[in-house]
């Protein structure tokens, strides 16, 4: 990975991170966290840690689903 590619993928991760800060809606916040992860995973693969990339790719959606369940219950109670 050269400097230009590192810049492009870092831009994706930073756009996601800054966007997470500015979103108000909870769905938009979760989507922006997903964009952040999309920018980070090429750096993991570029170092050769393919097993780490596979396991994080499977864990991150599960955490999102758990957060969605918590959000839904909170609205239901309120």
């Amino acid at each position: 990975m050269n400097d230009l590619l590192a810049f492009l993928f870092a831009a994706v991760a930073l756009i996601g991170a800054v966007s997470t800060y500015f979103q108000r809606d909870r769905f938009n916040k979760l989507i922006a966290v997903g964009i952040t992860f999309g920018g980070i995973v090429p750096f993991i693969v570029d170092r050769g840690y393919l097993d780490v990339a596979i396991i994080t790719s499977l864990i991150i959606p599960i955490t999102t689903i758990i957060i969605l369940l918590i959000c839904r219950r909170e609205i239901h109670d309120a």
């Binding site: 769905f27 979760l30 989507i31 997903g34 999309g38 790719s57 991150i60 959606p61 999102t64 689903i65 969605l68």
Partner: peptide, 8 residues
């Protein structure tokens, strides 16, 4: 990521 989009 598709599963995540599906859940959202």
């Amino acid at each position: 990521s598709t599963l995540e989009a599906n859940a959202i």
